[in-house]
């Protein structure tokens, strides 16, 4: 059962891509893997003002994740609180997970030759902190919500 989800208040989001870099910096990722994404539709005129809204996407932490099933070494795991994560020491970097995921979420880290993905910064959560993208969001538009809150 999933416990968490990341919610973007698109009214407050300014599309600065801070979250992308906060995430990469926290995980010490090199150029290549990007674990969350900010996107938007083309501008459309709304009452004379060209507007768009930003969307945030990271891993969906599926109820029944294909990436976990397909992983040959059992490195891709789902915790009791629903977080799907990579157990780095066990990962062999075969990237079967990325192929199995409908959205290609798991990314290859060329420095470690292992898969890497959003795990809601579970080390931070376990220490009573918020994920990097939430903590440092430029406009405090990102929130970590529990399913109960929703």
């Amino acid at each position: 059962m999933n416990t968490y989800t990341l919610y973007l208040n698109s009214k407050r989001c300014i599309g600065c891509h801070g979250c992308v870099v906060h995430c990469k910096a926290n995980k010490g990722l090199p150029v290549g893997p990007i674990l969350c994404e900010i996107s938007h539709e083309r501008l459309k005129s709304v009452r004379g003002v060209p507007k768009t809204e930003f969307k945030f996407r990271s891993c969906y932490h599926c109820e029944d994740p294909f990436c976990v099933t397909i992983c040959p070494t059992g490195a891709m795991k789902k915790r009791e609180d629903g977080i799907v994560y990579v157990d780095a020491p066990t990962c062999i970097g075969c990237m079967a997970c990325a192929g199995a995921c409908p959205w290609g979420i798991p990314q290859h880290n060329p420095e470690t030759n292992k898969a890497v993905k959003c795990d809601y910064c579970m080390d931070r959560l376990d220490a009573g902190l918020q994920p990097a993208c939430v903590t440092k969001c430029t406009t405090h538009a990102l929130k970590l919500m529990t399913m109960k809150e929703i």
């Binding site: 891509h17 406009t139 405090h140």
Partner: peptide
């Protein structure tokens, strides 16, 4: 290992450039 906007003023907020400092 971590950097963030001063909680007393920015409540942690930092922009993309700020997080790219260690790089």
């Amino acid at each position: 290992t971590w950097l963030e906007g001063n909680q007393h003023i920015l409540k942690g907020a930092l922009c993309a450039k700020g997080s790219a400092g260690p790089a």
